[in-house]
Each structure stands twice: as structure tokens, then as C-alpha cells.
Design a protein around this nucleic acid. Structure first.
Lengths: 209, 209, 209, 209
DNA sequence: GATGAATGAGTCTTCATTCAT
DNA sequence: GATGAATGAAGACTCATTCAT
């Protein structure tokens, strides 16, 4: 338990630095000097630098996974849109409460370790599958427009990620409104009926910018 | 011209390795051994490793920027949806034709160099602004549902990015259909009217997954 | 203190090699293999090779500066010639006790780093100025022949340097006698009165050697 | 002959750069770009960089050797002091007319190549010997005060060198007067009779500066 | 002869990790 | 457990020299 407390302390410090400088720019010296521990002590609690980073990454992934609930359909369950909204809010609230961890996941975790990469990859894959399953369910029940649910799932996932990246970069506005906007977008898209009229044929498009 | 050809040759080889191993895992030795040039030759054409990488990054950014056209509204212009579709198709076609470059942008470019980071950041920012302007225009003309165009722009950008990441990872299916799906999603969302009825109040949602 | 001891140890070894091979021929590998430390250890104690070299250079300059005292004129002070002799002896003794350091200053320090160059330059300049001031004082008191004290100062400085270079190169003879010779030369020059008689007019001189 | 002209041209350019930056800081690129020749051409005329440098060094050494004449004693010869003066003047004039070459010899030639070092070393040795022989001759004829002619020779050589280094560094004043000062110093030293009275005993000297 | 693209040995420097105290 | 000095593998970059055209 004492051990866990010490680990947590170091993780807390490391988190800040990783979020600020990324994995490669951050060296063990940065971490130990901020955490005020000796070099050797670091390796008493973590196998190596990568191990520490992975632990932080797992923290985000687990916390996020916890906050995204599967949709429940049934007479006693809240309306689906409410469930979606709640999911979104939990995610957004986490990102706002843990901007460093979020940053680590969103901008500094990809592309330097095959194992970490596939962890992240499979995390997103799981979420995409959850979304896809919900969509398929909704299609079956007539709540969701028939569509390629896999592609739609990625669109939803990507949209949420992007908004959240912006969120962690800038000062957050009205959270409830933001969540509502995302939700609306996912459900209704942006078009008015007038815009949809032309949607059958395909054509060339304007000119370069 | 001879010089440019040589550069291009090295760039071509480096691209493959960067796409496969990322920036940090790739060392100059990897590049020169694949390009079959001597160490010194490398530095004859590129200032350093970062310089080479940046050139590749600029290639993608420029190429993509070229392929995303501003929407033109007017009697002689194609319908907006067609223009959007054309944009999407051009982007998708590029990603499919240059999966390595795309990979470099999408997964290996972020988080290790402030300058590169802000380049990418501002590239996406420009696209987001283009989208936002189009949305604002559409809202003014009654073609687009009144909404927070900024948030919607990020949703669209993120959705497209995510689908494209998947695209560059897996074997591509029917491109035209994919483009159509993305377009539909952006315009109409996923909901049927029945799902939208519940959209006013807010609620808690089900239980953890 | 422990740290200082380690530094000193490395400095001691480096000194020998620098004196033997000069700055450019000496590489870090030479130093660490002689000092029996690992490559990384070197950089634990010195910022880089130049830093180490500069430290050695500063050692000589400081030590020499300490050994050259300003002349004191006054009833209780030793005669000026004695003070000069003492200065000379202290310098000569240092050179003999630290031939490597002396070599580093005298033959290996010039011409490869602007900063080091100006350090050495200003060190010699300070000594020249000390000499010049003493000469000016002596002229005022009638002890020194009226002359261009600046030029004379350089002559003295140069003469001493040259003798010392030879000293550090060859086995040292009778030190006291050597010091006496230098002193005599500086004070009286080499001429007998007979030679000085012809000193007014100027003329062409013999033929090439 | 054409070949010699080309060599001379390159030497002329290289001289300037070597004098400005020293041997190690100067690279072949500097030389060829200043001389406006191709890299390969350089090696057509010089075996390597060191070879080129050596040639410049030999130029100075030869030119200087030419300008220092052996003293001739005899009824028809000019007085010894005049001959010395003439030697000095020739040397000083050379240094002023070829400041770059002089710089190369005086500050950039020592300590990076055993062979070059011994060349310079033996050049100075020859001059020292010339001086020493003259002194010995003078002693025999009663023109020169009995002394350790070797040490005196080094004092003279060093004094001249030092003044000349200063010369090449700063704007030259009245050359004739300078030569006269050096000559006077070498012949008479700096002391007035009053200062010499204390020269027998030995003593401690003042206090640190 | 002239060119300049290509070469690769040589060096410095960094930094994650170990281990004796 | 804690420390921090020591380690050395790894990697970027330079530059004198060569050689095919």
C-alpha cells in the first residue's frame, strides 16, 4: 500500500511532464527531479520509462472505458438519446478533469511502440464496436436510419475525439451545450431538407481553393 | 533537376520506413541502407533527419490542401452536396494512393517537435475553418440547420479523419459507397425521426458496461 | 569534494594526453581510456571536451598569474632586481613542476577557439601591462633607461616565454643560473660599451646568409 | 608553369582563410569556394589539406630565413649594430607586408602535426643558433658581455617574436623607431646603472599582487 | 584537366539502465 | 529501501578524400 502511494506520486508528476513534452522529449531525469526521488528509486517502482508511460496510458484507457456505457433498450431504461448524452458528458467531464492524461492519450501516445499502439488501437476499436452495435440495434428497431453502421461508428468516434482534442487545448465553454451540439450532430447531421434534395446523383464539384 | 531526382529517391525510401516505424524508431542508418546511399550522401541532400521528415510531412499537407476545395455557391456551380462529395473523394483517393504518407501524417507526426506540431495543428485548423465558413454560409442560406458551426466543423473533420485512418489501415472497400456514407452521415446524422423525439430533456443513462 | 576529486583525477589524465598530442589529436576516447572511466562518466563531470580543456588552461593561467607579483618600491621592500628574480624563479619553478600544463599553454592552446584565444591573449596582455607599469615607474625614478616601455615590455615577456618553452622541452640545467641570465639580459642587454658606440647612424648590413 | 600559377592562386586564397580561422576551423570547402575551383581540382594541385598548409608554412619560413643575414665582421663590413638593425627591419617589413602568412606561422601552426611542429621548431632553432654564434663571436671580440649565449639567444629570439606578434595584431606605428627600440633593448637592456648596483645578492621579493 | 557527387571512417554526445554503498 | 555515480550502447553529424563523367 505504501508502495502504491509512492508509485501514484511518481505517476502524478510524470503525467504532467509527459503531457507537456511528450514521451521522447521527456527523460527520466525530468521525472525524478520533479518527483524528487533518486534515479535508482525510480527503477524500484517502475520497470523502465516505457512501463511508467504505459501505466499512465492504461489509466486513461480504463477510466474512459468506464465512462462509456453500453446502451440499454427497454421500457424502464432512459431514452437512448439521454444515454448517449450521459456517455458524452462523462467523457467530456473526464477530459476536463484530467487534461494531462487526455493529452497523453490524444497526442503523445501514438507511433513509437508497437505494443502501446495496438493497445490504443484496440481501445478505439472496442469503442467503435460498441457504437456500431448500438447503431445496428437502432436500425433493427427503426430508430436509426439504415446505413453502413461501421462507417457511421467511425464518423461518430472521430467526431467526438476531434472535439475533445480541441477541448483539451482551449478553455472550455458551456459543457452542456457542447455535449448537446455533438449529440445533435451525430443524430441529425447538419443538413436542412433543402440540402438533401440533391443527394442522389453524383457530380464534379467546384474548383480548387 | 538531377538533384531533385536524388532527393525524391531518398524521400521515397524514407517515406516507407517512417510509415513503418515512426520517426524515432527510424534512424539515419535505416534510411541510407534502404536508399543504398552512403551516410554522407544523405547529408548532401538533407540538413538532418528532421528536415527530411518535415519535407515528407509538407508533401502530405500540401497535397491534401490542394484536394480540398472551397465550396462555391451559385447558379452555375454544382450542388453543394456534389462539391462535398468531390472533396471527400479526392482526399480518399489520395490516402489510398499514398498510404505511407497518410500514415506519417495520421499517426507518426505528432508530439515530438513543436514546430512540426504547430504545422499540423494549423493545417487542421485551416480545414476546420473552411468547413465552418461553409456551414455558416449554409446556415445563412437555409441549407444548413442552425447550429454551433465550430463544433460541427470539428465533428466533421474528426469523422473524416477517423474513417481515413481506418482506410489506410485496412484494405479499401467500395470507395464511392464509403464516400457516400460519410456524406450522408455528415448531412443527416444517424437518427430516424422517432429517435429525435426524445431529444429535449436530459437524463442519466443506463449502467456501466 | 568527492566530485572534485573525481574531476581532478580526470583532469590529471587529460592533461598528460593533451600535452602529448594537442587538443585536436586528442579525442574523448583517449581521455576516458587513460582515466579508466566510461564514456558517460566523462560527461558527468565535464560538459564536453572543450570544457575540460578550458579548465586545464585556466589552471595554468591562474597559477602563473599567482606567481607573478607586482613590484613594490619602498624602503622596506627588497631591491627591485630581487623582486624580479623572485618572480622569474616562481614562474620557472612552476613550469618545471608542471611541464604538461605548461606545454598545453605554450604550444597547444592557440588558434582553435576564439574564446580560449582571447583568454590567453588577455592573460599575456595583463602581464605585459604589469611589466610596462613597472618600467614606467622605474623610468620615473631614474632606475630604468628612458625607452618605449610598451615595446620593452613585449621584449621582456617574449624573451621569458621563449626561454621557458625551451625549458619545458629540454632537461633543465641550473635553475638559479638560468634565472640570473634572463635577469641580466633584461637589465643590461648583451652589449659591451664598445658595441654601443656605433649605435647612432643607420646602415644596410652585410649580405644574405 | 601554368600549373604553378594555379597553385599560387589557390595558395593565396587559402592563406587568407587559414590566417583568419586557423587550420582546423578551415575546411576544404572554405578554400575551394573562395578560390572558385571545384573540389576535385583542389586535389589535382595539392596532395591534401595538410600539404597545402605546409606549403604556406614553408613560404614563411623560407622568406624569413632569407631575410635574416649572418653577421659579418671585418673592416669593410658595416658596424654590427647596423647589421642587426637591417635584419630586424627586413623581418618587420615582411611581417607587415604579409600579415596573413605571419599569422599562420605565429599563431596557427603549432601543435597539430608532429612533422610541421618539428619544421617550425628547427627553423627557430636555426635562428637561435645564428644568434648564439654571433654572440659567441662578439664575446670573443669583447663586443658582447660574457654571458650564457644560448639563453641570451632565446631571450632575443623570443623578444623579437613577441613584438612581431603584436605588430601583426595591431596597426603598425613608426617602424624605424620600433626597430630601434628592439635593438636598444637587446643591446642595453632596460636598467640604468643605479638599478644594476643591487644585482649581486639574491633575495625574496615583494608580495603577491 | 576539371568537375562535384559520393563515400565512410571518425567523433562527439545522450540517456536509459544498473549496482555498489 | 534509497541513493546517485557509473555505465556503454546507440545515434547524429562532419568532412577530407576519391572517382566516374
Amino acid at each position: 500500500m505504501e508502495r502504491q502511494a509512492r508509485r501514484a506520486q511518481v505517476l502524478r508528476h510524470a503525467k504532467v511532464i509527459f503531457a507537456r513534452k511528450g514521451y521522447h522529449q521527456t527523460n527520466v531525469s525530468d521525472i525524478i527531479s520533479r518527483a524528487r526521488i533518486a534515479r535508482g528509486t525510480f527503477y524500484l517502482y517502475f520497470e523502465n520509462k516505457r512501463d511508467l508511460f504505459q501505466e499512465l496510458l492504461d489509466q486513461v484507457l480504463n477510466e474512459l472505458a468506464t465512462r462509456i456505457w453500453r446502451l440499454r433498450l427497454g421500457p424502464q431504461e432512459p431514452p437512448p438519446a439521454d444515454q448517449l448524452r450521459a456517455n458524452l458528458r462523462r467523457v467530456v467531464e473526464f477530459v476536463l478533469s484530467e487534461p494531462d492524461l487526455s493529452d497523453i492519450l490524444l497526442t503523445y501516445s501514438q507511433g513509437f511502440d508497437p505494443d502501446l499502439d495496438s493497445r490504443i488501437q484496440s481501445f478505439y476499436e472496442q469503442i467503435a464496436q460498441k457504437i456500431q452495435r448500438s447503431l445496428d440495434l437502432g436500425i433493427g428497431m427503426g430508430l436509426v436510419r439504415p446505413c453502413d453502421s461501421r462507417t457511421a461508428a467511425y464518423c461518430i468516434l472521430g467526431g467526438v475525439k476531434e472535439v475533445i482534442v480541441q477541448l483539451s487545448r482551449q478553455a472550455p465553454p458551456d459543457i452542456a451545450a457542447l455535449v448537446e451540439e455533438i449529440l445533435r450532430f451525430g443524430l441529425s447531421g447538419v443538413a436542412q431538407p433543402a440540402l438533401l434534395q440533391t443527394l442522389e446523383p453524383e457530380a464534379g464539384g467546384g474548383r480548387p481553393d
